[in-house]
Design a protein around this nucleic acid. Structure first.
Lengths: 299, 299
DNA sequence: CACTCTTACGGCACCCGTAAGAATC
DNA sequence: GATTCTTACGGGTGCCGTAAGAGTG
């Protein structure tokens, strides 16, 4: 019986499939399969029922799982106990929404690289819903997205409230500085995909205020959206920090709306069953660096 | 970091020396040394201070030790959890005194072999004091000896009270059936070495009753002593069970004494820090089979 | 046919034990 | 010099990844 075998068993049992678990452990799927088979041979007991399409835990496997969990936790405890520099090492895969990717991500990565030089970060930018699913399936260690997760296996902690304002090119709106029903009807509304946090917030606001948008333009790239708005293609939302900087340069103007747009709450999400010290340090680092109003260094 | 490394570390830290730990784990001493070195390299921290003649735990080692202990305990828990047949496997080294070796040992070995066919027993016969030391040094898993241990690291549990009687050849004592001061003076007293439990009990009895023995004959082999007594060389003590059987054959007679010899308490002793399920099963087996009055199958 | 897991197999790395070396008492 | 631990080294094996196979839905 080895720690590698137990690690393979634990992740295979708690991730969505052997393949996901293998990827997470940075080994081939065949290696992971063999490690589990060897553990089963060692214990002379099947831990997975392979009769179906996907491997399911047997009763023995269910019993072993919490012990394996404690074992791996203990191993982590050992590593952190003796490591003087906090002892955060290895790989960390995480997901961020577009907004976070373009504002906070560079600072976060710089901070983590400075604080934990032995930690390799692997950020992945996607929509919150997709990230949540990959988080639950074990592909990611944590995610920073808009809103709380509704999944029981995932914990959420609020880290920031982001305020948005309407923005448009001065060439598009002339002297108008207020959002009106007519303006919404007459100009294109440029947004992220419907599943994105800011878009959901916007749709909710429109519905509550009995407003309807005319033409829609959806783009899955926030930087591209900013470019489109600045180019006068349509109106859209900018986080306040961006708007301020771009307004100073005269490339866009702020449009006021009544009522104002609500703040959008961003959270860090992680698997409840992941108690690694790594994750606690990472959460500290997120809280330490969080700032979604900072303009992208790109413009 | 592997379980083998942690096992090596744990036993090296809690046994008397690397050599003893290596023997216990059935690996060469160089292998054990390397496993520890690899663990230290892995953790980037020295666990032993090798500057002196023998390796001493560093502070980091002291901190790690309880975690390693919990880890190995967890591993044992896993093995027993999934093992249906009680799951007692592997090797078990233990010590027994001469008396236990000649009476209870065969029954015990037979019982254990029948109950736990995958367990390999390695009994070692020696004096209680020597066994205790080897127990503490990690060479033995448990010992069955006379009296309680005074060492704090060793736990003792009473398992039997053994009563002894004086015995002599009828040719030696004629019609006399009572121990007198004169008899003790005139005939040789045949005993086990001074450190043996029955001998210590006897010496105490002599001192309390202000008696002195004349010639002494010490032998480290209980079966040989029995032969010497039956041959009329001198008087000595037999456990009551033996005496009864030999008296029926007429080879020896019982001599009464006033006051009677006190009972001698036998215990099973084990290291307090050894919480393996194996040991609990073994203790059950000992209690199940314990009987020191049974005559040796040899005569 | 897509998906998931297992098996076969070649190659490499790791780990073991023997034997010699270094250091302490 | 005896004891304790480390280092050097040859040999075997255990483990990895690639690729093909088997079974399910």
């Amino acid at each position: 019986m080895t720690l590698k075998q137990l690690e393979a068993f634990y992740w295979a049992a708690s991730a969505a499939s052997f393949g996901v678990a293998a990827e997470r452990l940075h080994v081939s799927q065949s290696t992971l399969s063999k490690r589990i088979a060897e553990l089963e041979a060692q214990l002379r007991k099947d831990l997975f029922d392979r009769s179906g399409h996907r491997a399911m835990l047997t009763e023995a496997g269910e019993q072993l799982l919490p012990l394996a969990r404690r074992m791996l936790g203990l191993a982590d405890e050992m590593r952190t106990l003796v490591a003087e520099g906090g002892g955060v090492r290895g790989h960390c895969r995480f997901g961020v929404g577009e907004l976070a990717a373009l504002t906070w991500l560079p600072d976060f990565v710089a901070f983590v690289r400075a604080t934990y030089p032995d930690l390799v970060l692997e950020p992945q930018v996607d929509l919150g819903a997709a990230l949540e699913q990959r988080l639950e399936s074990g592909e990611l260690d944590f995610a920073v997205v808009a809103g709380y997760s509704s999944r029981s296996a995932i914990a959420s902690e609020a880290i920031a409230e982001v305020r948005f304002s309407w923005a448009a090119s001065p060439a598009l709106v002339g002297a108008q500085r207020v959002i009106t029903a007519k303006l919404l009807q007459d100009t294109a509304l440029i947004t992220m995909p419907a599943a994105a946090g800011p878009t959901r917030m916007l749709e909710h606001w429109l519905a509550v205020n009995n407003l309807e948008a005319g033409r829609r333009l959806t783009c899955n790239n926030l930087a591209a959206i900013a470019g489109l708005i600045a180019a006068g293609v349509g109106i859209g939302l900018f986080p306040n920090g961006w708007l301020k900087q771009m307004a100073e340069r005269g490339s866009v103007v702020e449009l006021r709306s009544r009522p104002a747009l609500p703040a959008l709450e961003y959270t860090i999400q992680w698997r409840r069953d992941d108690s690694r010290p790594l994750l606690q340090k990472i959460r500290e680092a997120v809280r330490e660096t969080v700032d979604f109003s900072k303009p992208s260094p790109l413009w």
